[in-house]
């Protein structure tokens, strides 16, 4: 007989809130690169403003976690879930900050044409967004195997990052006038690379919730 139905429903509700926040963050990440690619300044500004909502969501979830810990004395997997949720919201909020960073670069670039057509950066954003979505699926399913698999995909992001970095260095070497714009794109690549790292941190939390073991499942090259 389930005795703590009310508490467990609240826990489930909190998990739904994390999914909502996850989808806000995912959109911010994808749209930030889109804004950069299409030089869509209105969209970029929307992302900057939208970040405030994401920050507020994070505090809201965190507050509810603290409240449940204080009032319900959770144990075992419930405790691991609540403690991990506070870290997961922190990671999500930081990914949103990276998206905001990219949006600000789009605003800085203004109407200037990019130093090269943006191909790899949108791919990085899409894959990171997919990894993020899958990490939250693994959270819902308490699936450590999927979580570990997602973390492995971070290698691909690292490879993209190296590729973008090399290409931009070549462009800067050939044409010093491109240095400012190319450097900004390196920042974008870095923001995306860091976002993927934070997804692997979420995966580590999923493994902890499911197994009780805190493990570093994938150390990024960067």
């Amino acid at each position: 007989m389930e005795i703590r139905a009310k508490f467990h429903n609240k826990l489930k509700g909190l998990q739904d809130e994390i999914l909502v926040m996850g989808s806000m963050v995912e959109k911010a990440l994808l749209y930030s690169v889109e804004a950069l690619k299409n030089r869509d300044l209105a969209l970029a500004r929307e992302i900057v403003i939208g970040d405030l909502k994401i920050n507020a969501k994070r505090f809201e979830i965190e507050e509810q976690c603290v409240e449940l810990i204080a009032t319900q004395q959770p144990m075992a997997s419930d405790l691991r879930t609540l403690v991990s949720m506070t870290s997961i919201t922190t990671e999500l909020e930081r990914i949103a900050d990276h998206a905001e960073g990219i949006a600000k670069i789009a605003i800085m670039n203004g109407d200037e044409p990019p130093v090269k057509p943006l191909v790899i950066l949108p791919r990085m954003a899409e894959q990171t967004a997919q990894m993020l979505q899958n990490s939250l699926k693994a959270l819902i399913n308490r699936d450590p195997a999927s979580a570990r698999q997602i973390a492995v995909e971070d290698d691909q992001i690292d490879t993209y990052y190296s590729q973008v970095f090399r290409e931009l260095i070549v462009i800067m070497t050939e044409d010093p006038r491109a240095i400012t714009r190319a450097t900004r794109l390196i920042w974008v690549a870095h923001n995306l690379e860091r976002s993927a790292d934070r997804v692997t941190n979420i995966c580590e939390r999923v493994v902890f919730i499911a197994t009780g073991k805190i493990e570093e499942i994938q150390a990024s090259k960067y």
């Binding site: 007989m1 005795i3 703590r4 075992a76 997997s77 009780g212």
Partner: peptide
């Protein structure tokens, strides 16, 4: 026992999933 119990029944009891 209170963070990572090995037995499912312990987990269920201390998290209030049965009593």
């Amino acid at each position: 026992i209170f963070t990572t119990p090995k037995d499912r029944r312990t987990e269920d009891y201390i998290t209030g999933r049965f009593g």
